[in-house]
Simulated scan of single mutants.
Amino acid sequence: MKNTGLIYGYSLDGKGGGDVITGDDLNAPLPEGRVSWLHFDYTHADTQRWIIENSQLDQVVIDALLTEESRPRTTQVGEGLLIALRGVNASPDSDPEDMVGIRIWIDKTRIISTRRRYMLAAKDMVDALAANAGPTNPGDFLTMISAALMVRMQETINETEDSVDSIEEELVSSSSYDLRNKISAVRRIVISLRRYLAPQRDALLQMHQTRIAWLTEDNQQQLREVTDTLIRYIEDLDSARDRAAVAQEELSNRLAEQMNSRMYLLSLVAAVFLPLGFFTGLLGINVGGMPGAENPWAFWIVSGFMTITVGIQLWLFKRKNWF
């Protein structure tokens, strides 16, 4: 019966190419010396049925291949490796920090990988096989899929650093509240990416330190290179996070200074008008015997007195360097 949950299926020919395996051929025996790669959508009922009933894998491996959520890890089970990795979501209209996962079982004769959402790194493997430049053995597949994930990640890391650069440039000439939203967005991306990249670094370290027959010294060397690349990405994210935090602190300080300056100005205005308010309130009481009530010059005398009072206040403020 055809398995409609199969996305890609190949029988690796050992020369960089491979023959396509369809959903009808999943249970057919492979030619001698061939390695199969089966890539499934694990949410599909046919996939779940085949992995549970026909894959002949340990239950712990089956559970890992079909699990909804998985953090990056590498676990050796007998002569095979159970691997969970993450890559950036490069699909159109998607958030880069919304990372997609791939789960892989790999041993000397077969590779079984599962995913839920579209992953460009798997498509890169298919394109390489079509061009006869794909993996020739399980070790090559492991290094190539890991490297493809890193390549797809580079653009997102660079865009994050460019965003921080742009924020720092804007901060020189502006202290707009809009910058807060930009800084928060960058920090959210960095936190989300680092949440998975840190354990993925540990998974890759465990991967190239594993001693297993089909993983050659050359494969391990290539995995070390991939690990070094990932470590550099994590360091770049740490730098972007720290720079964004400094930018946010600087913006907060500037906005606080602006607020303090405005409050200080309002305080000075209130201090100037406080005695004037007292005089006008005193002269506005409705009691008998108010001096100057019948004097035609009383208004101008009072206005001149208050003007002199304001002048004296401003002179005192200036003398004390209050403005």
Results as ranks from 00 to 15, higher is better:
M1L: 07
G9W: 10
S11H: 06
K15W: 02
G17I: 11
G18I: 13
T22N: 11
T22Y: 11
T22Q: 12
N27G: 02
L30I: 03
P31E: 11
E32Y: 09
V35C: 12
W37C: 09
T47G: 09
Q48H: 12
R49E: 12
L57P: 12
D58W: 04
V60L: 15
V60I: 14
D63C: 05
D63W: 06
A64Y: 01
A64V: 03
L66M: 09
E68S: 13
E69Y: 14
S70H: 09
R71T: 10
P72T: 08
P72L: 06
P72H: 09
G80I: 10
L81P: 12
R86I: 01
P92G: 12
D93E: 14
G101W: 02
R103G: 09
R103P: 13
D107N: 15
S113E: 04
R115V: 01
L120N: 01
K123G: 01
D124T: 08
V126H: 14
A128N: 13
P135R: 00
T136L: 03
F141S: 04
L142D: 08
L142R: 01
M144T: 11
A147C: 00
A148T: 00
V151E: 10
E161C: 07
S163V: 02
S163W: 06
S174T: 14
S176C: 08
S184R: 13
R188C: 05
V190S: 05
I191E: 00
Q200Y: 04
R201T: 00
L205Y: 02
Q206R: 13
M207H: 09
Q209L: 10
T210N: 13
R211D: 15
I212P: 10
I212H: 04
A213K: 13
E217F: 03
Q220V: 01
Q220H: 07
L223T: 03
R224V: 10
V226Q: 08
V226H: 08
V226E: 05
T229I: 03
L230Y: 03
I231P: 00
E235M: 02
D236A: 13
D236S: 14
S239F: 12
S239N: 12
A240E: 01
D242V: 05
D242H: 15
A245G: 01
S252I: 05
Q258A: 11
M263E: 09
L265R: 11
L266P: 10
S267R: 08
L268C: 06
V269D: 07
L274G: 07
L276F: 06
G277W: 02
G277K: 10
F279S: 09
L283Q: 02
N286L: 06
N286V: 08
M290I: 15
A293C: 02
A293S: 14
F299C: 09
W300I: 07
G304K: 03
F305D: 00
M306Y: 08
I308M: 14
T309W: 12
T309K: 01
Q313P: 07
